[in-house]
């Protein structure tokens, strides 16, 4: 039966965990945003496999400490891992290093190639871990308020509307797919028939969404929308301790990336 893929995080699940609260929810959203920037910069500038491994372990620990579901995280990591492997897997045969597996006349796999793929995988997944920990520990109202403060107009307005529509659209598409499959969709064979079925499901989804958008647009106009969609969620400012910890982490990354050589 078709469904919204279990290897991609779905918004209702994310919403459930973000509203439930937990240890990470006590950290200011601003601090979490800075931490996200820290991890993105870190995996971009650091080349040491050991440090990248430590960063991955750190984000995994933070995710687990927040009481978030680890098994789901591993499932959700499949697609990002596929992205990394698609780009890097061929280099496993071409990197310099000590040969680990040699098939004469065909290929040679070196330790350098294996380390490269592992490093790129860990880098990508480090940020995925923290991104998910961030959004699954930050309430809907806080993310809305953050978007309202950070994004320029009309990007913020469209973002806030999108964020609201995602949940409704998710339910509608899931129901449409279930109905199509229950009516014999699984019996269809061949690319054109299957593509046509999915296009019709998507088409009904488009019509539903756009009708909904029209109604929302009229309601906004009726209420005197002037180009500004305010979010009334509150944002806790970062504590001094949080700021000090983040500043220290940034300094450590600069030292580790540019001043100290670690394999």
């Amino acid at each position: 039966m078709p469904h919204l893929e279990s290897h991609i995080p779905d918004m209702p699940t994310i919403f459930y965990f973000s509203e439930r609260g937990g240890r990470l929810s006590r950290i200011s959203p601003w601090s979490k945003l800075l931490l996200l920037l820290f991890f993105v910069v870190s995996v971009t500038v650091i080349q040491s496999l050991v440090i990248v491994l430590l960063l991955y372990a750190l984000t995994l620990s933070l995710y687990a400490a927040g009481g978030l579901p680890l098994r789901r995280l591993f499932g959700w990591s499949i697609l990002p891992a596929v992205f990394v492997l698609t780009i890097s897997i061929l280099f496993i045969f071409s990197q310099g290093g000590t040969p680990v597996l040699v098939v004469p006349g065909l290929f040679t796999i070196t330790d350098g190639g294996i380390f490269l793929v592992i490093k790129l995988l860990l880098k990508g997944l480090t940020v995925v871990n923290f991104s998910l920990a961030f959004i699954m520990s930050t309430k809907y109202a806080e993310i809305s308020a953050l978007a309202d403060k950070v994004l320029p107009r009309p990007l913020d307005v469209v973002f806030l509307l999108t964020f609201r529509f995602v949940f409704i659209t998710f339910e509608v598409i899931n129901d449409l797919l279930t109905a199509a499959w229950a009516r014999g969709g699984s019996l269809l064979k061949g690319v054109p028939k299957m593509a046509s079925l999915y296009a019709k499901v998507f088409g009904i989804g488009v019509i539903y969404s756009f009708d909904k958008a029209e109604r929302v647009g009229k309601a906004m106009e009726a209420r005197g929308f002037s180009g500004e969609l305010r979010s009334y969620g509150s944002l806790r400012p970062p504590s001094l301790l949080e700021l000090a910890a983040i500043a220290t982490a940034f300094c450590a990354v600069i030292v580790l990336a540019y001043l100290v050589v670690i394999p």
Partner: peptide, 11 residues
């Protein structure tokens, strides 16, 4: 059009 863009993006 803003609402339409929001709906299309979500979709």
């Amino acid at each position: 059009s803003l609402a339409l863009a929001g709906a299309a993006t979500a979709l």
